[in-house]
Amino acid sequence: MANQVEPKLIKPLYDELQKERFVVLATIDFETGGPNVNAISWIYAKDDETIYFAIDNRSRIVQNIKNNNKVVINIIANESTYSISGEASVKQEKMEGVPLKLALIEVKIKEVRDVMFYGSKIVTEPEYDKTYDKNAAARLDKQVMDAMKNA
């Protein structure tokens, strides 16, 4: 059902955001004032009104959020495409229990909108593969996801 709007995550999206997955994050660039888009994967729905994500604390995303807290997370799931709008803040400058210098970002959800064009559905969701050491990647992913779940 295209163009539905909800004030919080619907159950299928909440369920999809219980694990690492590909999403696209849009912020407002602190220098240009224009859109800035990034692909991220360390993301977790704390509850149906709050999303956490982890990024390198030197990332431009951190400065963008500090300058303008409006964000949109785009997720392809549940046979559709969703735009999750909210207000972001830096919850932790450096996450505990993670070997990298990652910032924990909290997004308070304002609106979840089904933005799939009329008369269509997603038949294959995006997939990705880690191109570095698989064991190291799995270990790091677990550390980051556990840290977000315990935040």
Rank of each mutant, 00 (worst) to 15 (best):
I76L: 11
Y52K: 04
P126Q: 14
D47R: 07
K142M: 04
P7V: 05
T124S: 12
A147R: 01
D146I: 02
G119I: 00
V112N: 10
V112G: 05
E49H: 06
Y132L: 06
D114K: 12
A39C: 04
I105S: 00
V23I: 15
G86Q: 13
A45N: 06
Q63P: 00
K121V: 00
A77S: 15
G86N: 10
E106R: 15
Y14L: 10
Y52C: 07
Y44A: 03
E111D: 04
N68I: 05
V37H: 03
N38G: 01
L104E: 09
A138P: 03
N68R: 14
A77P: 09
P126F: 09
A103T: 02
K19A: 10
D29E: 06
Q92C: 04
K19R: 10
A136N: 13
R21E: 03
N36E: 13
L17P: 02
I40C: 05
P126T: 11
Q63N: 10
Y44P: 03
K46A: 08
A39L: 08
N74S: 13
E111N: 09
P7W: 02
G97R: 02
N38M: 05
T124Y: 13
V24C: 03
T27S: 09
R113C: 04
V144T: 05
Y82F: 11
S83D: 10
D48H: 03
I122G: 05
R139W: 07
K134T: 01
F30K: 13
V123C: 14
K46L: 08
I84F: 01
P7R: 14
F22G: 11
A54K: 10
V123A: 14
R139V: 15
D146M: 02
V115R: 03
V90K: 06
N78T: 08
K70N: 11
I51R: 01
E111K: 15
E125Q: 13
S80P: 01
K94I: 05
D114C: 07
K108V: 08
P99A: 10
K130R: 14
K46T: 00
T27M: 08
S120C: 09
E31C: 05
E111F: 09
G33D: 09
A103E: 03
E31S: 13
D141H: 15
K70F: 11
T81M: 12
N135T: 04
A147K: 02
P99N: 11
V107T: 07
R60W: 04
I40L: 12
E20D: 12
P12N: 09
T32P: 07
